[in-house]
């Protein structure tokens, strides 16, 4: 998944910066870098993506049917 940052500017001038597909602490750094262009950070919300490890995890699951 591509690493992207979405900036929403409401008609009232409120701004939200959201990261998409960026895992781990890197997502906060990326969002903060963009937020600092705009102004003063009011609040941060960390979602489950923050706690996900960077990189790929591969594995194999074998499902055996019952005879």
């Amino acid at each position: 998944m591509a690493e992207e940052i979405e900036i929403s500017i409401s008609p009232t001038g409120q701004v939200t910066v959201r990261t998409i597909g960026i895992k781990g602490p890197k997502c906060v750094q990326a969002a903060e870098a963009v937020a600092k262009i705009i102004g003063q950070i009011e609040s941060r919300e960390l979602t489950s993506e923050y706690y996900e490890a960077e990189g790929h995890v591969s594995g194999q699951i074998e499902v055996r049917g019952r005879r």
Binding site: Q14, V15, R18, I20, I38, G39, Q40, R44, T47, Y50
Partner: peptide, 9 residues
């Protein structure tokens, strides 16, 4: 699923 920051311009 993301990191969200609210900013005052």
């Amino acid at each position: 699923m993301s990191s969200v920051i609210l900013v005052t311009p």
